[in-house]
């Protein structure tokens, strides 16, 4: 695979490949959780992996509540963890 996508994850530069989901990118970077719950602030990551459970939410380019398991990485994406309920920035 020659083509690479350049993104940031919590401000750090990372590379992804076309077709990769945000969840696979984060797992590949050694991350297991990237969201905290609204109530108790508990860590969450991938659970259902197919867009059903809404556990793996991340903020992508300022937009919160993006399912990391379904969203494909796009070049230039700024991806960051989501803390509780966030509003778009």
């Amino acid at each position: 695979m020659s083509e690479h996508l350049t993104v940031t994850v919590d401000g750090e530069r990372a590379t992804a490949v076309p077709g990769q989901t945000v969840a696979a990118l984060l797992i590949g970077l050694g991350r297991r959780s990237w969201r905290t719950t609204r109530g108790d602030g508990r860590p969450r990551g991938v659970f259902c992996g197919i867009g059903v459970c809404f556990d793996c939410l991340v903020v992508v380019n300022g937009e919160p509540d993006v399912r990391a398991c379904r969203r494909r990485v796009a070049d230039g994406d700024a991806i960051r963890v989501q803390h509780g309920a966030e509003t778009p920035s």
Binding site: I27, G45, F47, C48, G49, I50
Partner: peptide, 23 residues
Amino acid sequence: WDLPGVVTAGAAQALAKSQRTAI
């Protein structure tokens, strides 16, 4: 069961088959 790292079988399958990623 809500700890990160606990996933559905389908999640492990989707990550492996479509993303070449072991959970």
